[in-house]
């Protein structure tokens, strides 16, 4: 085969391979190319976040509006500090917005659900969500139930 045909097909092959890698990164790993869409950060402290992971969904009324950017632990208070990345510009979520950790279905992934408030002021970039409710742990619930049944 002529060298030129070989070169063209190798070029096409390398291009197709590179495109596949990009596809895997963007469509499968969900990495967003370029920060064209703006977002801001809210911080929430939970007493328990077990099951929540970085890149978990943040939803409001069942619609995904952002992702969990990072989860850190505050050793002194024994709390988890969760950074939420919310799409769009700040100035729409009210100051008394609540956050709870819920589970999708029975075996599903954990996500952060935001509960709308009624305050006039709104949360800005880097603000804390005060009203939080951590993940429900089945073992704790069962343990609670047993002590209550024993007491009565």
């Amino acid at each position: 085969m002529r060298m030129r045909t070989v070169e063209i097909s190798v070029g096409a092959f390398v291009l197709a391979g590179a495109l596949s890698l990009v596809f895997l990164a963007v469509k499968v790993s969900g990495v967003s190319l370029g920060q064209s869409s703006s977002s801001y950060v809210l911080i929430a402290r939970f007493d328990d976040v077990s099951g929540l992971r970085a890149r978990s969904k943040v939803s409001l009324a069942g619609v995904t509006i952002g992702r969990v950017a990072a989860i850190e632990v505050d050793m002194a208070y024994g709390e988890a500090v969760v950074r939420l990345e919310i799409d769009g510009e700040p100035g729409q979520l009210t100051l008394d917005t609540g956050a709870q950790i819920l589970t999708e279905g029975i075996l599903g992934a954990r996500y952060v659900n935001l509960l709308p408030g009624a305050d006039e002021d709104t949360l800005g970039d880097g603000d804390y969500i005060e009203d939080t409710q951590g993940a429900l742990i089945l073992e704790n619930l069962v343990g609670d139930l047993i002590t209550r049944l024993g007491a009565s």
Binding site: L24, A25, K27, V28, S29, G30, V31, R53, R55, S56, K57, A109
Partner: peptide
């Protein structure tokens, strides 16, 4: 199908 992947597949750890 897609969102399950995008939420949990990590770029370095998996890809």
């Amino acid at each position: 199908y897609w969102s399950g992947m995008q939420e949990n597949v990590e770029i370095w750890n998996d890809l």
